[in-house]
Design a binder for these strands. Structure first.
Length: 239
DNA sequence: ACCCAGGGTCATA
DNA sequence: TATGACCATGGG
């Protein structure tokens, strides 16, 4: 049984607030560069693809060791892949980083890109080799401060159980569904929402054995309701 | 010995 | 259009 419910603005707010109460403020994307963290976020967004963040930090540290963390400097490294060896598939990611850095320089950097609309910027990012839906949104959200819902695998798992996602997993469909009821201007909301979903997916809502007894979302969650009352034919749809 | 990790591309049917 | 192989390192 899956999600037949469509989220409402109030429902999404409650979802967010329940997680926030349980896990606290996350302020998610970690950065070493206090002065100018934004380019580091671009780099991290590619390096972290299917790779644990601890390894990404090591790879970023290696890049720093080798020179300034700028697009031009990265493009000049003789063996970029070797520098990021610790970040999983490093040869693949070296090509992706080069594509991203070339794009960044060609477009004139953050100053010029900030003027772009979110939709245009997303489309441009998606045209790059190695930038898919999730990485594009992570960049839009964390490097450009745009209000975007990151519909990653954790989000699908939790929202399917919660009752807000069903059928085949379609990234854009879920993103639009959430953004349709989320605050249009509030990037911090989406920042926290994504971070809280990750925290919850790793802490309670595991793939195999979700810990529904200790779950902060249980009162609104279709899966938890089904656990509590297996015989109820049709659970009441809470807002 | 598996499975997963802050994914995406490409070849195949 | 929908799966599967592949990338490649580390940690549980």
């Amino acid at each position: 049984m899956g999600g037949r419910d469509t989220p409402s603005a109030a429902g999404l707010r409650r979802f967010h607030d329940d997680l926030l109460a349980a896990y606290g403020c996350q302020r998610w994307w970690p950065t070493q560069d206090e002065a100018n963290p934004r380019f580091e976020i671009l780099v991290g967004a590619v390096l972290t693809q299917h790779t644990a963040w601890t390894n990404v930090e090591i790879a970023i540290a290696a890049l720093r060791e080798a020179g300034p963390l700028t697009a031009r400097a990265l493009l000049e490294h003789a063996d970029l892949a070797e520098l990021i060896r610790r970040a999983g598939p490093h040869r693949v990611k070296a090509r992706r980083l080069q594509a991203l850095c070339t794009w960044f320089v060609d477009r004139g950097g953050f100053q010029a890109l900030e003027a772009w609309s979110t939709e245009t910027l997303r489309a441009d990012l998606l045209s790059l080799h190695g930038i898919g839906f999730e990485t594009a949104d992570v960049i839009l959200l964390y490097a450009f401060g745009r209000p975007c819902f990151v519909a990653d695998a954790y989000a699908f798992r939790i929202l399917e159980r919660y009752g807000w996602s069903d059928g085949p997993r379609n990234y854009e469909r879920l993103r639009r569904r959430i953004e349709a009821v989320g605050p249009a201007e509030d990037a911090i909301f989406y920042d926290e929402l994504h971070a809280l979903i990750v925290a919850h997916a790793r802490g309670r809502c595991h793939k195999r054995a979700p810990d529904c007894a200790a779950c902060a979302l249980a009162p609104g969650c279709a899966h938890a309701r089904a656990q509590a009352q297996p015989n109820t034919p049709r659970a009441e749809a809470g807002r």
